[in-house]
Amino acid sequence: MKKLITLAAGTATLLGTLMAGNAMAATTLDAVKQKGHLQCGVTSGLPGFSQPDDKGHWTGIDVDTCRAVAAAIFGDAEKVQFTPLTAKERFTALQSGEIDVLSRNTTWTLTRDASLGLNFTGTNYYDGQGFLIKKDIGVTDAKELNGATVCIQAGTTTELNLADYFRANNMEFKPIVFDTSEQTVQGFASGRCDVLTSDRSQLAALRSKLADPSSAVILPNTISKEPLGPVVRQGDDQWFNIVKWVLFAQINAEELGVTSENVDDMKKSDNPNIQRLLGTDGDMGAKLGLPADFGYKIIKEVGNYGEMYNRNVGPGTPLDLERGLNALWTEGGIMYAPPMR
């Protein structure tokens, strides 16, 4: 009889453990603080957006977006670890809690926002889909691509836009779907496909990887809207607000003329907007659950949006992309952040 009781007790314990899986975890902010670093999902290598250098140090605009969040939480932009993900893996990695933020040139769409259990926190790069083609084929417009073989990366909005575009224009195409953007370049370089399609910024990055970048051109057509931005899990509004307002802080900083160079002087500024941004006045940090000077730390460690842009993808970098849509709203673009007050 005693044995039976022991067995029953053991079974009950086992079942209890299984049930405990239901309990809700603590907030993401608490979990990140406890870990001591932010876990950020990025690409496995896309120049200008997220790419490790020869010393294993990650750079890029998506990487800096994560560093800014780390700077806001810890006051240290280096307290972040990067998880390279393929397009196919990215949402599962975020859903399962393997990463805290997904910052992987991910397009904001209704389906992704509403049915994946995820939230997009904003847009750190306004992009659009284009085509990269070998110069010697002699095509100058995407409407001439009927019958073309097209290399694409799996699991992207690009795959759907491509089918839509060709269908809308009554053209046929053959898709070759690869797992990583690296493989699409290899396929393009080896002549497996006539055209490589992706977001225009990516095309610039991928073209720079070709043996002879000048042998290929980007067609003028932009066939879709691709607002790229960071993503977090649904159901943790505090964390959602933090990631959202870190980017807004960077955009506001550019608008206010606060840069990583002058941020120390700006601390003495009389402008109340700057004071609230840098935490010398108001309690913006406390409202988000962050230190009061989180804005100062972001700008000091990572810089404002314009600095982040110019450093990674702007003119003079290998990607050499004009600000265009990504200029501030005051300068003809659509980068606009709500006021910090």
Binding site: A87, K88, F91, T92, Q95, T111, R112, S115, L116, A154, G155, T156, E159, L160, V177, D179
Partner: peptide, 10 residues
């Protein structure tokens, strides 16, 4: 690959 990603129903 593609279907999983477009629908998100892993």
């Amino acid at each position: 690959g593609t279907t999983l990603n477009q629908t998100g129903q892993a």
